[in-house]
Amino acid sequence: MIDLHYWPTPNGKKVSIFLEETGTPYRLVPVNIGRGDQFKPDYLKLNPNHRMPAIVDHEPADGGGPLSVFESGAILFYLAEKTGKFWPQDLRGKYEVTQWVIWQMANQGPKLGEAGHFRRLGDREGDQSYAVRRFTDEANRLYGVLNMRLRDRRYLAGEEFTIADIVIYPWTVNWQAQGQDIAEFKHFKRWFEEVGARPGVQRGLAVGADLGTDNSKLSEEEQARIRKILYNQRALPVPD
């Protein structure tokens, strides 16, 4: 059994999609990031970076005690290896997939996250026009990378659906909030629609749909409190 420590964000949905696609049994453990659950001591034992998701495998392949893994890319590598699904192990196929998972973690996720952040921020912290332009343009470049890649293949790593597609897809669902028009990227749009039509992907996206909070319905004071938790963090003190 896998424990999935989760909140319904793109990074969390990478893992729920994989688990639903493969039919892997799991137990959902909510980590309310707006409440600060990610900073609780018990959770920090699983993820010292105080982010989610994290998993705990109660039946690891080595037969030892429960094994925890954090970082969504590492989690997908682990689960794909454990289940033998969505990650080919021949030399060329393996690294065709691996490089796109790393690309997502190093490029797509951080840059699309910044695009969404600064576009949502408005003028609460002063003039953000440069940041909005910088990250919206970078988001456009990254969609162009995907579009170019998908011009001559069905999926990111070839003709088979893999964890490369799983890790990238959730970050593209909110393309409008990132200031993009996917009609500009016809090869990407074809892939986006095909992946989004998969029943396992749809089930994975729906996981935790009842957990999220509509911040627009909260008071300004409560919104400010949540923003402080999510966006104004500094180093945690080392315990004595």
Rank of each mutant, 00 (worst) to 15 (best):
M1H: 11
M1R: 12
L4Q: 06
Y6G: 01
W7F: 15
T9Y: 04
N11Y: 06
N11H: 11
I17Y: 05
G23F: 14
G23S: 12
P25C: 10
P25W: 05
P25K: 03
Y26K: 02
L28F: 08
G36Q: 05
N47R: 02
N49T: 11
D57K: 06
E59W: 02
G63Y: 12
L67F: 14
L67D: 08
V69E: 10
F70N: 15
A74H: 14
L76E: 10
L76Q: 10
F77V: 13
Y78W: 07
A80W: 07
E81G: 05
P88F: 01
Q89Y: 03
L91Q: 07
G93R: 05
W100P: 08
I102E: 03
M105G: 01
N107S: 11
N107P: 01
G109E: 15
L112Y: 15
L112C: 15
E114H: 13
E114Q: 15
G116K: 09
G116W: 09
R119D: 03
D123G: 04
R124E: 14
Q128I: 00
R134S: 08
F135P: 02
E138Q: 13
E138S: 11
N140D: 14
L142K: 07
Y143Q: 06
L150V: 00
L150D: 01
D152Q: 02
L156M: 03
G158A: 00
E160F: 00
T162V: 04
T172V: 01
Q178S: 04
I182W: 01
A183Q: 10
E184T: 05
K186W: 00
K189Q: 14
R190N: 10
R190Q: 14
E194F: 02
V195L: 13
G196A: 04
G208W: 03
A209Q: 08
D210E: 09
D214W: 03
N215H: 10
S216Q: 05
E220F: 02
E222Q: 13
Q223F: 04
I226H: 06
V238D: 14
